[in-house]
Each structure stands twice: as structure tokens, then as C-alpha cells.
């Protein structure tokens, strides 16, 4: 008798473990390309308690569900656009998952943004003034949009910049798109000196130092003032600021200095300090 009871209990347990299989809902208005968020997804199913997620290749979007007598309708709420391309719709019911392949297209572009990339961002007339430019346009959800030319997503060109040292912007009001034409190397160095009686010093000024395109050579450029008397060779360094570098050299009685200012291999004329 005991054995029979045990068997009965086991059979009851087995029966209680059985659950009704969930059938895959049928997508009634199936399309190869779904327009988002305008299109809705119409499904036929007898089962309730569905969850729906639309997976674009970059983000999951939970969908709302409205049930009707035949099945249910899915739609996106509070979403105006999405990253376009191949996507998957996932329907889940407890531990049952069903996948539907589709392609997404936005219903509208939203706000259109132009992108203008420059490379290199910094050019120096010493080496070259060529720059590569790539232009493209994206919609509000970062999808590529055709440029002005039909069926072209990108526009590319090689440009030669004017040799005018300045900060430029590829796109107005966008400092992040700034690119730079730097001044080149010093072409010539003017030099002048005066004697400051009060301080007993020679004030030597190099400048304005310009490159071959007449740009003022960049701030911080090292100017070496090399001067010598009969005993010693001196090297005083100063940095250019707005094209000028000034040093004060202490004067000594009965001592004459021959002075040259140098920036790399470019040298000024030699002057005498006495």
C-alpha cells in the first residue's frame, strides 16, 4: 500500500511540473524595413504576459504592449528616433524567448548636423600647408545622411591653407573643430641695444622676429644671446613674446662685448656693446 501511495504522489508531482507550451506569436504586419517609431508591430497570439524589447545594434528599446482579442500590438513610446540598421525584436514570456529579424529606418531625420574633420589639425609652413578635409552629415540619432551630392555620405578634399598663422575653425561656433596654422621658423633677426645708465646695463632687444611669410614667430621660441669679451664666452637665453625678446646684460667698466642673437641656425648681425 505504501508503495502505491508513493507512486501516486510521484505521478501528481510529475503532473504538477508540466506547463503548457508557449507558441511563437505570429507577426501579422511583417516588413523588411520598419519605419521607427511610426510603424507598430501587430502580433497574433493566444498567450498574455509578453515582454518586448527592440534591440538596435547599439541600444535596447523597451516596447509598450496593447493586448486585443487576437493578440497584441507593440509600439515605441516617447522615442522619436533610433540608430538605424539591422535589429532584433525579442518577445519573451517567462523563460520563452522569440526573435524576429528586421531592419530599422527612422521616420524622420530630426535635427541635422554637419561634421567637418581636418587632418592634420596643426600645420606649420616649415613642413607644409596641406590639409585633408572630410565632410559628412548625421541626423539627430547619429545616422549618416546623404551630403548635398546625391548618394554620397562623405565628401573629401585636399586643401592648401594660407600661410597666415592663426587659429581657424572648420565649423563656426564649434571651438572643438579648431585647427591651427603655426608660424614657421625665424627668417631673420633684428637686434638693437641701448645702455641703461641708471641700472648700468645693456638692454638688448631682438625683434620683431618673423618667419618667411611675415608671421610673428611663436611665443616661447628660445633666443640665445651669445656675447663675448676677451676672457669669456657668454650665453644668455630668453623666450620670444609677441616677436620680441629682451635681455639685460650687466655692463662692466672697460669691457666691450660682441653680441649675436641666434634662433637655431638663424643669426642676427653682430653688434658691439661698450
Amino acid at each position: 500500500m505504501k508503495k502505491i501511495i508513493i507512486h501516486i504522489v510521484l505521478i501528481i508531482l510529475l503532473a504538477s511540473c508540466y506547463s503548457k507550451p508557449v507558441e511563437k506569436p505570429v507577426w501579422l504586419n511583417k516588413k523588411a524595413i520598419v519605419s521607427f517609431p511610426a510603424d507598430t508591430f501587430l502580433f497574433k497570439s493566444e498567450t498574455k504576459n509578453w515582454k518586448a524589447i527592440l534591440l538596435s545594434f547599439s541600444q535596447p528599446v523597451p516596447l509598450q504592449i496593447n493586448y486585443n482579442t487576437e493578440g497584441f500590438v507593440l509600439f515605441a513610446k516617447n522615442k522619436a528616433g533610433i540608430t538605424e540598421g539591422a535589429a532584433q525584436l525579442i518577445l519573451s514570456n517567462d523563460n520563452h524567448f522569440f526573435y524576429y529579424e528586421l531592419n530599422l529606418n527612422n521616420h524622420s531625420y530630426g535635427t541635422i548636423t554637419d561634421k567637418d574633420y581636418r587632418s592634420p589639425k596643426t600645420v606649420n609652413p616649415d613642413s607644409g600647408l596641406h590639409q585633408q578635409r572630410i565632410v559628412h552629415t548625421i541626423d539627430e540619432w547619429r545616422n549618416l545622411v546623404y551630403t548635398e551630392k546625391p548618394f554620397q555620405y562623405f565628401f573629401e578634399e585636399e586643401i592648401t591653407l594660407a600661410p597666415v598663422a592663426k587659429n581657424y575653425r572648420a565649423q563656426n561656433n564649434k571651438p572643438i573643430t579648431a585647427f591651427y596654422v603655426q608660424p614657421g621658423s625665424a627668417f631673420s633677426i633684428n637686434i638693437s641695444a641701448v645702455f641703461d645708465k641708471q641700472e648700468n646695463m645693456f638692454i638688448v632687444t631682438a625683434g620683431p622676429v618673423k618667419d618667411k611669410y611675415n608671421n610673428v614667430v611663436s611665443n616661447g621660441t628660445l633666443v640665445a644671446f651669445l656675447y663675448n669679451n676677451r676672457q669669456n664666452y657668454f650665453r644668455m637665453e630668453a623666450a620670444l613674446l609677441n616677436g620680441f625678446a629682451t635681455v639685460k646684460i650687466p655692463a662692466e667698466k672697460n669691457t666691450t662685448y660682441n653680441l649675436t642673437a641666434r634662433i637655431n641656425e638663424t643669426a642676427s648681425q653682430t653688434i658691439q656693446l661698450q
Binding site: 611663436s218 628660445l222 637665453e237 623666450a239 637655431n264
Partner: peptide, 11 residues
Amino acid sequence: SFQYNLSPKAS
């Protein structure tokens, strides 16, 4: 035996 940091046009 080297100046690791250099001003513009310094060597």
C-alpha cells in the same frame, strides 16, 4: 647628459 625638456627652437 641631456636636456629632456626643450623650449621651441632650443637644442
